[in-house]
Design a protein around this nucleic acid. Structure first.
Length: 801
DNA sequence: AAGCAACCCCTTTTT
DNA sequence: GGGGTTGCTT
């Protein structure tokens, strides 16, 4: 038995309205037959629109039911965006659909098949930081040198191996070092298994292996998902592509149910925007896909609705310098627009000052600050820029850095919650066993770990064997967690968290701390997050735009139909979506971020700073041709973020690692078309030859030397501003989803009825909610407790009294 | 257990 | 240069 699909809705918008305003290429892509297809979607070409419209069109024309398609993205944001747009296009709840991130969908899959995947039902997800601490524990337990086996690097190695589909036994042992690494990997795997936790890569690998090794399960899913749509396909790694292959049969492939129709894998991507090779992404997957699936439909989306001509000309000319491209050229009907402005500064400090002044000038001329982005290659560059903005009192927002669920106080709180769910989660146990301080020293913890190691049990299970005063304190801690578990059973998420915060002493601890105000506020924010989570989650409520992974946790178990607890769902959410990083979101502030972080975003005005050799392209990447090409793609991504105005900036000197460094201007500047540029400082600058001579005279003097240099088109302000934006595709007006009458009596159930469940035995129906595929019943089973069951899966037989 | 000095790193990193 | 962590000292 498997999760079933939702019914097809009664009313849909007419096909003509769905397809209106698509350009010919977009239309062709949207209406392709159910066959493998590769869409080369240039920056700003309406990629998301094609994806969502295709989904809507497939549903509208009855080619597929909502449960029969899957759409995969990389980020929660992209998945959310897709769901939001879809719910505006379709008159029904998109919630049950398999639309989400790779990891979110894997989680959903493993929650439904936890037994077959050899996982505990309450398995927890380790984020990157958790994984490093877990690796560290393994290395210590093996008494290895942490200098030689740096936990972070080992964690990277393990993740890399998993993303290549390799288990410890598959690691090719070339030397003593890899031998040991494979051993650590094995021990780490054992530890995770023992503790009931999985890391990000494990989510993927475990679900891939389950499908690979179970032909019937694979056949089931292949028969179910008639259409599989993938966003940002150029960023997929080996494992992700292999995972997709499990869901979409290749031409001529047979499976347990006989010959399968070739899976309609609809891949959307842009090889020119592949910027994650360093993390294992494999652009080659695009070519492999075309070959292996004998792709007959390849469509290029080259019409750009975002940027003016000069900006696109720059992007096109730059990327021409790369080899082995699939070939694509962006074009626009928006006219050339403003020239791309290039500026040289004597120092990074002066550069920051210039950017600040230009940005503020734009703001005074009417551009919202939130529509101005300052981009840089590496995070270290943000500080001098931040300082300039801060001193000028200009509001700004730095993207990246610590995110909500990664904050220490939040991780502590989550650790308590995870222990409530799964006491064997040793990572969480160690995090909070002595936090807030309970007089449990490091030595006692080590003793406990020794016992646990010797007996092969979790720390929590080993506490009883620890004697002495330390043993008593530990036992108190275990009792605290157990008490919380008892105390919070059946309570709302809000109550659970509030009780935990009080009973654990976390809140008191931070209240007493001098600098703890922010942390207290964050903990309060956690309660709020839980509250809104529940509201969105709320059984039976209409939901229009729904955060993706939040649905995942509530999928019913494949065997019993049991729905996991809101707490478990919340913990999954916390692990899979780290949350945003800034409280000041919403304010009109200048946006600052790395180029990587800017991918997928767009702004009226963009500043690309630090365009210097060894910075951008970065010195570590420039050595290899592949590295240089990726840097160039990175520059391409940066350029194509701009709608109306683009500023390129570089500096003669820069403080780096505590030293003043002198860099030549980036080679990328020379790869841009002269006609699209306007040099605000002399193109052949007085310092371009190096850093000798009248260097000091350059400070300050090089400033505001006016715009009379260079030349090309002037172009004038105003007039055309806003054009690019209004020409961009807008989502169709949102028809409100019709309210559906709850019909929970699908199985002839009613409140108070006594029922029988194959696994849980006799029970009494306490409540009924939702309808159709969403219908749920709350049943009290006595010995097995009270459970929410999905009626589409759970078999409940009424018992006559 | 807290506070401070010493030490280390320093590209990007969606999940 | 600076931020974060570690470990030593009180």
């Amino acid at each position: 038995m498997l999760p079933s699909s939702s019914p097809v809705p009664a009313t849909l918008p007419p096909e003509s309205r769905l397809l209106a305003n698509l350009n010919p290429e977009q239309l062709a892509a949207v209406t392709l037959p159910a066959e493998p297809a590769l869409i080369l979607a240039g920056a700003g070409s309406g990629k998301t629109r094609v994806l969502t419209t295709r989904i809507a069109w497939l549903l509208q024309t009855g080619q597929v039911s909502p449960g029969g398609l899957m759409a995969v993205t990389f980020t929660n944001k992209a998945a959310k965006e897709m769901l939001t747009r879809l719910s505006a296009m379709l008159p029904f709840n998109v919630r049950g659909m398999w639309i989400g991130t790779f990891h979110g969908l894997c989680n959903r899959f493993l929650r439904a098949h936890w037994k077959q995947a050899n996982l505990p039902q309450t398995f927890q997800i380790l984020d990157a930081g958790d994984a490093v601490s877990a690796v560290k524990r393994v290395i210590r337990a093996m008494q290895l040198d942490e200098e030689r086996f740096v936990p972070k690097q080992v964690a990277w190695f393990i993740a890399g191996a998993k993303e290549d589909g390799l288990r410890p036994k598959d690691i090719e042992v070339r030397d003593a070092q890899t031998q040991k690494l494979a051993e650590i990997y094995q021990a780490y795997e054992d530890q995770c298994q023992r503790e009931g936790v999985v890391d990000f890569a494990e989510l993927m690998l475990r679900s891939f292996e389950l499908l690979r090794d179970d032909p019937h399960l694979r056949a089931h899913y292949r028969a179910r998902f008639r259409h599989i749509l993938v966003d940002e396909f150029q960023d997929t790694n080996r494992l992700q592509y292999a995972w997709l292959k499990m869901f979409a049969a290749m031409p001529g492939e047979r499976d347990a149910l006989g010959e399968t129709a070739t899976g309609a894998l609809f891949a959307v991507g842009d090889d020119d925007q592949s910027i994650y090779a360093f993390r294992g992404a494999r652009v080659g997957n695009m070519a492999d896909f075309e070959r292996e699936y004998r792709v007959r439909h390849r469509i290029k989306l080259e019409r750009n609705y975002r940027s003016f001509g000069n900006i696109l000309d720059s992007a096109n000319a730059l990327i021409e310098h790369n080899t082995g491209r699939l070939g694509k050229n962006l074009r626009t009907e928006a006219g050339p627009g403003e020239p791309v402005r290039v500026h040289e500064s004597p120092s990074d400090f002066a550069e920051a000052q210039w950017v600040l002044e230009q940005a503020e000038q734009l703001h005074r001329a009417g551009t919202a600050r939130a529509e101005i982005a300052i981009l840089y290659r590496s995070n270290a560059q943000s500080r001098v820029l931040e300082t300039a903005l801060f001193n000028a009192g200009v509001p700004y927002r730095v993207h990246g850095g610590l995110r909500f669920f990664e904050r220490a106080e939040i991780k502590h709180a989550l650790a308590y919650l995870r222990l409530i769910e799964n006491p064997d989660d040793d990572t969480s146990f160690l995090r909070v066993v002595n936090f807030p301080a309970r007089g449990i020293g490091a030595r006692s913890v080590e003793q406990l770990q020794d016992i646990a190691r010797a007996t092969g049990r979790s720390l929590h299970q080993s506490v009883g064997a620890l004697g002495g005063a330390a043993g008593t304190k530990m036992a108190n801690f275990v009792r605290l967690v157990a008490g919380l578990r008892e105390d919070t059973r059946g309570r709302t998420l809000r109550e659970i968290i509030e009780r935990m915060l009080a009973a654990s002493g976390l809140l008191d601890f931070y209240r007493a701390e001098r600098e703890g105000q922010d942390r207290v506020e964050n903990l309060e924010e956690l309660v709020n997050a839980a509250e809104s989570f529940v509201t969105v989650e709320g059984f039976g409520r209409e939901v229009v735009a729904l955060p993706v992974d939040e649905t995942a946790g509530l999928l019913p178990d494949a065997d019993t139909g049991e729905i996991i607890s809101p707490l478990a769902a919340f913990l999954t959410h916390a692990a899979l979506e780290a949350g945003d990083n800034q409280a000041q979101a919403g304010q009109d502030a200048i946006q600052m971020m790395t180029v990587h972080a800017a991918k997928g975003l767009e702004f009226d005005a963009v500043f690309i700073t630090g365009l210097e050799e060894s910075l951008f392209p970065h010195e570590n990447a420039a050595a290899e041709p592949d590295g240089l090409e990726e840097e160039r793609r990175l520059m391409y991504v940066a350029i194509t973020r701009a709608r109306q105005r683009l500023h390129l900036s570089f500096s003669q000197t820069r403080m780096l690692h505590g030293q003043t460094r002198y860099h030549a201007r980036s080679r990328f500047l020379a790869e841009l078309p002269e006609g699209a540029l306007k040099w605000l400082t002399p193109k052949e600058g007085s310092f371009s030859g190096g850093f000798s001579g009248g260097f000091s005279g350059g400070f300050g003097g090089g400033f505001g030397r006016g715009s009379s240099y260079g030349g090309g088109h002037g172009g004038g302000y105003g007039g055309s501003s806003g054009f690019a934006r209004s020409a961009a595709p807008a989502p169709a007006p949102a028809p409100l989803p019709p309210k559906r009458e709850p019909d929970p009596s699908g199985q002839g159930l009613r409140k108070g009825l006594r029922v029988f469940h194959n696994k849980f035995g006799e029970g009494v129906v306490l409540a009924l909610e939702g309808s159709g595929a969403d219908a749920r019943a709350q049943v009290s089973f006595g010995r097995h407790g009270t459970k929410w069951l999905a009626l589409s899966v759970a078999k409940l037989t009424p018992i006559d009294d």
